[in-house]
């Protein structure tokens, strides 16, 4: 008996990195998965990988910041699988700029993808979860929401916004037996932070300030997401779990 047998899960930004690990991990626990991804090629590759692994996944090209795109993705999920049990709002971007030099368009793009995208996807699945009187939403924020990020004010603001949004959403969904929680990764070994490294800088060097002595791997997030999405997490709502090797302690 797998922990998510018979469940349907949507994972945004599932074409790579943390989102891919979560989608694969949930499929292994029996969930049918929508791989919602802006990049059609990487989304299709992850859906194919899940299929080869014996799972059932559908890739859907999605821009979480665009209302119509989110609506089409959720409609496709309901058409293909008939229900929505879990939504993981993972899609996010982390470009770098000082506040002084930050273009308004860049601010809007980060808030739009990370925070507005989380709102749009949550709003799109809420009617189904309320009607089912069951559902789990897991939003991926960041430890930067709590400690801030130099040259990443838009990112930190968007991620802190996700925490406030999720607490409010949890209060609204609780009467219907649905939960909403946040996980905050720390430094994680994915392409996005590697693209932001200064010349000569290594991502692994950041392990020095992490109590558990290593940077996170995408798979480190899978166990906490499965806990929140499965029967074991049924009375946890509105909470924030930091999965960061102990760097920031909540």
């Amino acid at each position: 008996m797998n922990r998510l047998d018979g469940k349907v899960a949507i994972v945004t930004g599932a074409g790579q990195g943390i989102g891919r690990a979560i989608a694969v991990g949930m499929a292994r626990e029996g969930a049918q998965v929508i791989v919602a991804e802006r990049n059609a090629a990487t989304g299709a590759a992850v859906a194919a990988e899940i299929g080869q692994d014996g799972g059932d996944a559908l890739a859907f090209q999605t821009d979480v910041a665009a209302e119509a795109s989110v609506g089409a993705m959720v409609a496709a999920c309901l058409q293909r699988f008939g229900r929505i049990d879990v939504l993981v709002n993972n899609a996010g971007i982390f470009p770098r700029a000082s506040v002084e030099e930050m273009a308004e368009e860049e601010w809007d793009r980060v808030i739009g993808t990370n925070l507005v995208g989380t709102f749009l996807c949550s709003r799109a699945v809420a009617p189904t979860m309320i009607a089912q009187r069951a559902g789990r939403i897991v939003n991926v924020a960041s430890e930067k929401a709590l400690e801030g990020a130099a040259n990443g004010a838009h990112y930190a603001a968007s991620k802190a916004g996700i925490i406030g949004f999720t607490k409010s959403l949890a209060l609204e969904l609780a009467p219907y037996g649905a939960t909403a929680n946040v996980i905050c990764p720390g430094v994680t070994d994915t392409a996005q932070p590697r693209a932001n490294l200064a010349p000569g800088e290594r991502l692994e060097d950041r392990a020095a300030r992490i109590p558990l002595g290593r940077i996170g791997q995408p798979d480190d997030l899978v166990g906490p997401v499965l806990f929140l999405a499965s029967h074991a997490g049924r009375f946890v709502t509105g909470q924030t779990l930091l999965v960061n090797g102990g760097t920031v302690r909540w």
Partner: peptide
């Protein structure tokens, strides 16, 4: 081990 990368945290249930 599902929480293998978590330490120093508080889980409110």
């Amino acid at each position: 081990d599902a929480s293998g990368y978590m330490t120093g945290q508080t889980l409110h249930v």
